[in-house]
C-alpha cells in the first residue's frame, strides 16, 4: 500500500474553497510524517487554473480530472472516478471535506473500495504507525478516538475550521497529471440548484458568527443581527427554536440537528445554551454571549458573558464596532 496523502478539492469558479486549504495544511504534515507525497485531486469541468493554484498551496502533485459529467457534483460520477483512481494508485489516506457532497460521496466510496471511513474528523495523527482520528459523538458530550485498521486506503471526512490553512506561495509548482476517465451517464439528474442569495458569508467558513435564539422574540429582530454581522463581516446563524418557529430557514441552524461551526468568535444572542445547541458551536475559539438571564447555561461556556437586554446592547455594539473600524 502507498504512502501518499490525497486531498479531494472543494472548489468554485476555478478557485479552491477555504476547507481545501485547511486539508492541504494538515495533509502536508501527515504526508511528511508518512514519507509520502501530498496529492490534490481536482474533479470538475472546466477546472481552469485550479490545478496550478493547488500547487501554489503546497501539493506535490495534482490529479486533474475533467469531464462534462463532473460539471456539478453527482454521487455516481464522483464515486466512479474516485474509486477508479484510488484502486489504481492506492493512496494511504484520502482527506475529503465535510461538505454536502463530501458527506454524500465518502461513505459510498469507502464501501466501494473497502476502505475504513471516519466522518466529522477534528484531529488526525499517527501513533505506533497507525492513523488515528478524533471526532465528537453524543451531542459532543463524548470525544471518540478511532483507529484505522490495515494499511489503507483510509478515508477521513474532515470538518471545516479545525486545521490551519496552507499558505500560498507563488511560483511553487506541482506535477499536474491530467487523468483521462470514462464516466457513465449518472442515473440521477440535477434539475437545478436554487441559490440562497442571503448567505453573504458561509456559516461554516466564517471567522465570526452572530447567532440568535428564542430571545429575539420574532423574525423581524434578526435584522439587528444582520446589521451587526455586516459590520463584522460575519455570518448569521441561529439556535433551533427560531427555525422551529419559522423565523429563519433551516440552513441557519447550528447544533445537533443543524450545522457544526468553529469560528474564531461565536456571538450568541438571546440563546440559552441547550446541550443540543452547544453540540454545534462549542468548538469555537471564543464565545461571547448576550442574555438577560444570568443563569442561562450559555454563560458556563462563554469566554465573555454579558447579562442584559439584547435589544439595547446589540445596536450599541454595532455602533461601537463601526466606530472602532473607522479609527482603524
Amino acid at each position: 500500500m502507498g504512502s501518499d496523502v490525497w486531498v479531494i478539492a472543494d472548489h468554485a469558479g476555478g478557485s479552491p474553497r477555504r476547507i481545501t486549504l485547511e486539508l492541504l495544511g494538515k495533509g502536508r504534515e501527515l504526508a511528511d510524517a508518512r514519507g509520502g507525497r501530498l496529492v490534490a485531486v481536482a474533479l470538475g469541468h472546466p477546472l481552469d487554473g485550479l490545478p496550478r493554484t493547488l500547487g501554489e498551496y503546497g501539493a506535490d502533485a495534482v490529479l486533474s480530472v475533467e469531464h462534462p459529467h463532473l460539471r456539478s457534483y453527482s454521487t455516481e460520477a464522483y464515486t466512479e472516478v474516485l474509486s477508479g483512481i484510488v484502486r489504481q494508485r492506492a493512496p494511504w489516506l484520502v482527506m475529503v471535506p465535510s461538505t454536502a457532497w463530501g458527506r454524500d460521496c465518502a461513505p459510498r466510496l469507502a464501501a466501494r473500495v473497502g476502505a475504513g471511513v471516519v466522518t466529522d474528523v477534528e484531529a488526525l495523527w499517527v501513533q505506533d504507525g497507525r492513523l488515528q482520528a478524533r471526532r465528537p459523538m453524543y451531542t459532543r458530550k463524548v470525544m471518540g478516538t478511532v483507529e484505522y485498521v490495515g494499511d489503507g486506503p483510509h478515508l477521513a471526512v474532515v470538518l471545516p475550521k479545525v486545521f490551519a490553512p496552507a499558505e500560498r506561495r507563488e511560483g511553487r509548482t506541482a506535477d499536474v497529471e491530467v487523468v483521462a476517465v470514462q464516466v457513465p451517464e449518472p442515473r440521477t439528474r440535477l434539475v437545478e440548484t436554487r441559490s440562497l442569495q442571503r448567505e453573504r458569508v458561509s456559516l461554516t467558513e466564517a471567522e465570526v458568527v452572530v447567532s440568535g435564539g428564542r430571545g429575539l422574540r420574532g423574525p423581524e429582530n434578526f435584522a439587528l443581527l444582520d446589521a451587526l454581522a455586516a459590520e463584522l463581516g460575519a455570518a448569521v446563524g441561529s439556535s433551533r427554536p427560531p427555525v422551529d418557529s419559522g423565523w429563519v430557514p433551516h440552513d441557519y441552524e447550528i447544533g445537533q440537528t443543524g450545522k457544526t461551526v468553529s469560528p474564531t468568535v461565536y456571538i450568541a444572542v438571546g440563546i440559552s445554551g441547550a446541550p443540543q445547541h452547544l453540540a454545534g458551536m462549542s468548538g469555537s475559539k471564543y464565545i461571547v454571549a448576550i442574555n438577560k438571564d444570568p443563569n442561562a447555561p450559555i454563560f458556563q461556556v462563554a469566554s465573555l458573558g454579558v447579562v442584559g437586554d439584547l435589544f439595547q446592547i446589540v445596536p450599541k455594539l454595532t455602533e461601537e464596532v463601526r466606530r472602532l473600524k473607522a479609527q482603524g
Binding site: A110, G114, P136
Partner: peptide, 13 residues
Amino acid sequence: RVRYSRFDPPPRR
C-alpha cells in the same frame, strides 16, 4: 476497517 480505541469527555472550556 475502523475501531474505536477510546472515549473521552470533551475538553472543558
